[in-house]
């Protein structure tokens, strides 16, 4: 599938999505509330994006950005979906019911960035100990004992 076809397909389901083609892959910027609609369409529609190969979050100090890398084992093309989150109350729908790999990746993002994934089946800390305070991968995380300022 060409990028044009994908763009057309996404515009049909989500007219407000904006596109960015400067990078290697097609970037799609959406609102967090639209994620589930778009994800379902991408998975079940003709794009057949059945492979979520990277799920992460980026801290921009003013806001957080969820980054989803989708690919299709049928068409072999990849797209990137981004959604900006409010840094104080980050919350977004879980994708773990559509791509089961999202369950672990979302748990990681939850503890590292503090993003709440709604309807996640088992949103607990995966890597850090249960008593850990703070979100280590955020830019303003301070740990005077273990971090050395360069």
């Amino acid at each position: 599938m060409t990028n044009e076809a994908i763009k057309e397909f996404i515009t049909a389901t989500l007219p407000s999505a904006s596109f960015d083609e400067t990078g290697e892959w097609l970037n799609i910027q959406i609102e967090p509330t639209q994620l589930l609609t778009l994800a379902k369409a991408l998975r079940e529609g003709e794009t057949n994006m059945n492979y979520l190969f990277c799920l992460t979050c980026v801290d921009w100090k003013t806001h957080l950005t969820m980054v989803y890398h989708f690919s299709s084992t049928q068409h072999r093309n990849s797209i990137v979906v981004k959604a900006n989150l409010d840094r104080n109350q980050p919350s977004i729908e879980t994708l773990s019911f559509i791509w089961r790999t999202a369950e672990f990746h979302e748990r990681e993002v939850f503890e590292m960035f503090g993003v709440q994934f709604e309807n996640h089946p088992d949103l607990r800390k995966l890597i850090l100990e249960d008593e850990f305070k703070g979100f280590p991968l955020r830019k303003d995380f301070e740990d005077p004992i273990n971090m050395i300022k360069l």
Partner: peptide, 26 residues
């Protein structure tokens, strides 16, 4: 997978390693 977000400086702004073992374990 190596995912780097750069702001043009000498260090990456955000780097993410999509490790195969993490997904396989899930």
């Amino acid at each position: 997978g190596v995912y780097i977000v750069s702001e043009g400086g000498t260090t990456p702004h955000r780097i993410k390693f999509r490790s195969p073992g993490f997904s396989n374990l899930s």
